[in-house]
Design a protein around this nucleic acid. Structure first.
Lengths: 212, 212
DNA sequence: AACTTAAAGATGACACTGTCAACCAGCCAT
DNA sequence: ATGGCTGGTTGACAGTGTCATCTTTAAGTT
């Protein structure tokens, strides 16, 4: 139904796919602001108008790239944990979240930092985000004796997500660099934030994640 | 030393000031992506190159606008609280933070959502951000018997900031709309997040903020 | 087999952008 | 008076997204 994620953009691939791959590469090289349909076409050795046969506008191509990033993100989260113990799994999930943001800053910034594509216009993107959220809610619910749809679980999931998201967002925005935090302190900050999350989950549910 | 913040951009103002004001207006109207130095110049009835005498590039003008937003933000936070009780003040600070993001979404998004201007290149912007941060740290320190520069206070300030920032970021990004949260639940979510912050601060310092 | 049709791609044009270069009016200090 | 600096103008250039208009090529239909 879909091409495998590790497919290489060879000349035999359909142009739409090659456009997406090349766009991601271009963003990785020069940043999302520098993404240009013409440059994509140029690198693909194709006329500057060819991509328009597959994407109505630059924004639509960007939205497709963002959707891919969400997919990649979900796969990344899925690939971790599985320790058997729900509490440890939840801790691993938090670490994986931050690790992804740290290892793939471009894609993370694409997903949460890009204001260009209005989410409501691209439903598949929302669907992917929803999947990631219920992943988290499931992890929290597993540490208690309640369902994933439990009100408290959903509230706490929102809290955890907000905290992690906010942390990487602030760290990414280079503002902390102007705040006289050393590199060591920033690493400690992550541990501190995760520990605080543990405190909250501990207070609301069963014993929470251990920190390190 | 500085023009009053509510100054109107009349023709008698220096051009640099008028550029900033008009840029903010333009961003409010059409979004940050549509900001164009030429359009600013056009609306000011001045040549398209005139703004370049005051701002080396488009990015520098944007950085100045962001710096103003930080200033506005700090003033907004400063205008609240003052109840006498440090704990209540801290709670008010949290509410004010979220209120600002809700009432001035454009400026908030400018401050934290704009990836365009690399922060390190614009020191005044960083300085303003630092001021906002120490405001928060001061609020937390006031509830304990330690200084604003205390390590634990700074870590907790970072945590609080991250949580609030992440919350408004997620709420703003329309992702929650795809998550089947009702409007009432989202209001409750704010209270829940603030309460969780209170739990953490409570665990680390003196008795923390009350919720509602 | 001949003809129709629609898609995929190529060319060219237009309005718009940021930015570089050169030029010009004052003004202030020497 | 004159030379330089500051703030302003005009003109040009390379890029960009996007619209309109071909050309080719492949798939169907009769």
């Amino acid at each position: 139904m879909r091409k495998p994620a590790n497919a290489v953009a060879s000349a035999s691939e359909p142009l739409a796919e090659r456009c997406v791959v090349e766009a991601m590469r271009l963003i990785a090289e020069r940043g999302v602001e520098e993404l240009s349909l013409r440059e994509v076409a140029r690198r693909l050795g194709v006329s500057h108008q060819a991509p328009y046969k597959h994407f109505p506008s630059r924004e639509h191509l960007l939205a497709e790239v963002v959707a891919r990033s969400f997919e990649h993100f979900a796969e990344f989260l899925e690939a971790r944990e599985r320790h058997g113990d729900p509490h440890a799994d939840l801790g691993e999930l938090g670490l994986a979240y931050v690790a992804y943001a740290s290892e793939h800053p471009l894609e993370y910034r694409l997903m949460f930092g890009t204001t260009i594509p209005r989410a409501s216009a691209h439903p598949t993107m929302l669907h992917r985000a929803q999947a990631a959220f219920s992943h988290l809610a499931r992890g929290i619910a597993a540490t208690r004796r309640v369902r994933e749809t439990d009100e408290g679980v959903r509230m706490d999931a929102l809290f955890v997500w907000a905290t992690l998201h906010g942390f990487v967002g602030i760290e990414r925005s280079e503002i902390t660099e102007g705040l006289a935090f050393t590199a060591k302190q920033r690493r400690e900050a992550l541990a501190h934030v995760l520990a605080n999350i543990g405190v909250v989950l501990d207070a609301h549910g069963g014993a929470a994640t251990r920190t390190r």
